[in-house]
Nucleic acid binder design. Structure first.
Lengths: 135, 135
DNA sequence: CTTGCCCCTGACGTCAACGTCAGGTTTTAA
DNA sequence: TTAAAACCTGACGTTGACGTCAGGGGCAAG
């Protein structure tokens, strides 16, 4: 399939697909005249790329990890890299969950202003100068 | 306290604090000579702002929501806004969890390439799956 | 007084993931 | 055959949350 159809199928722009290729995330065969031609599986790959982007990975990181995902082989370094990204995502999930709970508390307190609910931002930070770290 | 100390305490840059003020997220008293002066509570507020940023909220959204957090009152619109952000964060958490599970599967499969683990990116796509014969 | 550190206000620079436009070629529909 | 649609390669524009630099002021210590 050509780039327009892939864009339509995967829900990203043509420009984005060309950008992915530029970043080494997506390969394409070229026709005689230079037009890109993709196999069916490209749609899944684009979905995967989008998923990883939305998880906060950069193009460079994705480019480093995709080959080992493709081949399903990993060096110790790539395994460490994968595990590190997994842990980063875990931490991000935890932080988001705390934020969501805080938002819920705010919603509850603003719904009924008379209550003595805990204030948002007052989690349990006994010491000072602590970054957003593991609870 | 002055801006340098607040920056050191909250772990963000002086530039960021001035930016927050510019965006209407953080108020400061001014000394005679124009220097910013913050109360102790400002550190907590900066933490909150950082938390909301890291949850993917924009300056504008934060600026719209902070007053109702402060006053703990909400109009129907702001409640809806808060709930919408909460739901967005929930969805983001779910997507991240799926990505993390995918990453775990990749890690497992690359750790032991001989196993027949599911491939990443194949979540629930019941459409046709024409695999080239990968043993 | 002057040295050094902190502070001020602009204002331009950065970076990533694209959007968009220009100018030209290829493919497809009429 | 021809016109529209799709594609190509540059290359510049956009956005958000700052970084960084320039140029100048304020204040306690030596």
């Amino acid at each position: 399939m050509r780039i327009g159809e892939l864009a339509a199928r995967s829900g990203v722009s043509v420009r984005a697909l060309r950008y992915y290729e530029e970043q080494g995330l997506l390969q394409a065969d070229r026709s005689e005249s230079g037009q890109r031609h993709y196999p069916e599986a490209a749609a899944d790959r684009v979905q995967l790329i989008q998923t990883l982007y939305s998880a906060g990975l950069s193009s460079r990181t994705i480019a480093e990890l995709l080959p080992c995902v493709d081949a399903r082989v990993s060096t110790p370094e790539s395994r460490a890299r994968l595990a590190a990204e997994r842990d980063r995502i875990d931490a991000q999930i935890a932080a988001l969950a705390r934020t969501r709970d805080n938002l819920d508390a705010v919603i509850a307190s603003t719904r009924n202003p008379a209550c003595g609910c805990a204030r948002i931002g007052e989690q349990d930070v006994p010491a000072q100068a602590s970054h957003s770290a593991t609870p």
